[in-house]
Simulated assay, not measured.
Amino acid sequence: MNYAPWSWAEKDVDPALFPQELMANFYYLLEEQEELNNDPQILIGKAHAATSSIGSATVILAMLERNGILKIANVGDCGLRVIREGRTVFSTSPQEHSFDCPYQLSSEIVGQTYLDAMVSSVELMEGDTIIMGSDGLFDNVFDNEIVSIIARYKDVDEAAKALANLASTHSMDLNFDSPYALEARSKGFDVPKWKKVLGKKLTGGKPDDITVIVGQVVSS
């Protein structure tokens, strides 16, 4: 999950409280209500309703059923990729009001709810690798880089660490032509015209919070 610390901090609100309570509510609900296991969208709604902290957060939730179907509900610009035999076979799409302004669950009355979640599903196979992350990962690391890291590290913990480290490195590199920079230019954001004349363009990663989870499908 992801949150916007620059906006809530200005209001003297700890931006970590809302997502932390939201995630705790996910855990408690799953422990207490087994029927929720089949519907991540409903779980998002119940966890959101139970969250009393002030703040907001993007969120992605995925549940693997016994038949191998992965059900996904996503609000905002967190993402999920499925890697199979060295290629990306499934990707979620971010939800944004406008560039760099994602959908979010919020404590405010005006905002997105579980009904706004993008719901999808994918049939998994043994050996598939699932990567989930905040936009801090996907804004700074290209899909082909993700595939390369997954191929290099067989241990999922090591793969997750490597992806997080790569995202962090790219986020601080002013010369890296990141996914974020490419999208920004496609939306009309760029350097001033006089810099363009000199052959310059908007580049650099996006400093952000970075969350990465990597899992692999194995036989039970």
Rank of each mutant, 00 (worst) to 15 (best):
P5K: 00
P5H: 00
W6E: 13
W8G: 01
A9S: 11
D14Q: 01
D14M: 01
P15Q: 00
P15H: 00
L17F: 03
N25A: 08
N25Q: 14
Y27P: 01
L29Q: 13
L30V: 06
E31D: 09
E31I: 09
E34M: 04
L36K: 03
L36Q: 06
N37E: 13
I42G: 04
I44G: 13
A47D: 14
A49Y: 10
A50E: 11
I54A: 07
L70E: 11
I72L: 11
A73W: 10
V75M: 07
C78V: 03
G79M: 04
T92F: 05
F99H: 06
Y103A: 06
S106M: 10
S106T: 15
M118Q: 12
S120L: 12
G127M: 05
I130V: 11
M132P: 08
G133N: 05
S134F: 01
N140P: 13
N140A: 04
V141A: 00
F142P: 01
D143P: 04
E145G: 09
V147H: 03
I150N: 00
D157L: 06
D157H: 11
T169S: 13
S171D: 13
D177C: 09
Y180W: 15
F189Q: 10
D190A: 07
K193E: 14
K196S: 08
K200F: 05
K200I: 02
K200W: 05
K201E: 13
L202A: 03
G204D: 10
K206V: 02
K206N: 06
P207C: 00
P207G: 00
D209V: 01
I210P: 08
T211E: 01
V212I: 05
I213H: 00
I213N: 02
G215N: 00
V218Y: 03
